[in-house]
């Protein structure tokens, strides 16, 4: 559990960071909280010569709330998300989900940017970003661009981010109505056996807007389009919940691992989806 030698860089601006990674190409990797990368380096599964630490870059930190728009710097830690009272007001689901990530020690180091950019299907924030229809800002040698979270994930650890780009911030509109993030895990600190996020907005007795997303139930996070279309315009009654649940389960594609076989995971998915739906509807 000792990594190979590498050169350590600690730039203090995004531009400098991009310069370093442009110079070294695939021999360089940026590091945020390090909870995914460092173990991989220690296991010598991540092979890199240049480690670019982003923690000195002030412009990557902080939460900005302007009207409906929420922008979170990539280097904002999970702990900072939980502690932010403004965020808890405009997007309480962020607080609810962040509290279910790992444990306090990990959350002091782990960042939202690292969580979403790494493309690890076990991470919770990518699923949440599907739910919120967030946009990711990517900075590269040719300037910045925006990618929808729903277009970002291609396969496990493969994303739309180019090698020389850094994910700098996340933007989403604050959700209205009911919300829930349900996660089943084996123990504190574990990835989800199955997790589901739900947003529900009601207009009278009808669902005017819905969003459903899943974590660790496929090799990418899943936005459940069919479940959303079932819910939208429905009365959110038992029948709609059942149909949406089934649709969301059908959108999942879990693999077998130590958390259990596929059949179990699909069943667990069904339970967490239904519970998330019921809780979100109750809160709507």
């Amino acid at each position: 559990m000792i990594p190979a030698a590498f050169e350590y860089h600690r730039p203090d601006s995004i531009d400098d960071a991009i310069k370093i990674i442009s110079e070294h190409g695939d021999e360089a990797r940026v590091i945020a909280g390090g909870h995914s990368l460092i173990p991989m380096m220690k296991l010598r599964m991540a092979d890199l010569s240049h480690l670019v630490d982003l923690q000195q870059i002030a412009e990557l930190k902080g939460i900005i709330i302007e009207g409906q728009s929420v922008t979170i710097g990539a280097m904002t830690t999970q702990h900072e998300l939980i502690a932010d009272e403004g965020l808890a007001k405009v997007a309480p689901i962020m607080t609810e989900a962040a509290l279910q990530i790992a444990d306090p020690q990990v959350r002091y180091m782990g960042t939202i940017g690292g969580n979403v950019a790494n493309g690890d299907p076990g991470n919770d924030m990518p699923g949440l970003m599907q739910l919120l229809d967030a946009n990711y800002t990517l900075a590269g040698p040719n300037g910045t661009r925006t990618v929808k979270a729903r277009d970002f994930y291609e396969a496990a650890y493969f994303t739309a981010r180019e090698e020389e780009e850094i994910l700098t911030s996340i933007t989403f509109n604050s959700p209205v109505g009911g919300y829930a993030y349900e996660k089943q895990k084996r123990k504190i600190g574990d990835y989800a056996t199955a997790a589901a996020g739900v947003l529900i907005t009601k207009d009278g007795g009808t669902c005017s807007h819905a969003s459903v997303a899943l974590t660790n139930l496929a090799d990418t996070p899943i936005y459940c389009e069919e479940a959303v279309s079932i819910l939208t315009g429905s009365d959110l009654g038992a029948e709609a919940i059942e149909a949406a649940t089934i649709a969301a389960v059908n959108a999942s594609d879990p693999g077998e691992d130590n958390r259990g076989p596929i059949e179990f995971k699909k069943h667990a998915a069904k339970i967490v989806i239904r519970r998330a739906l019921e809780r979100a509807i109750e809160r709507a």
Binding site: R186, T193, G260, E263, F264, H267, A268
Partner: peptide, 16 residues
Amino acid sequence: HDHWRIWQTANKLGLH
């Protein structure tokens, strides 16, 4: 008796 094994027990007993 982790989650999936308990689930499997319940499943085999027809509780689902």
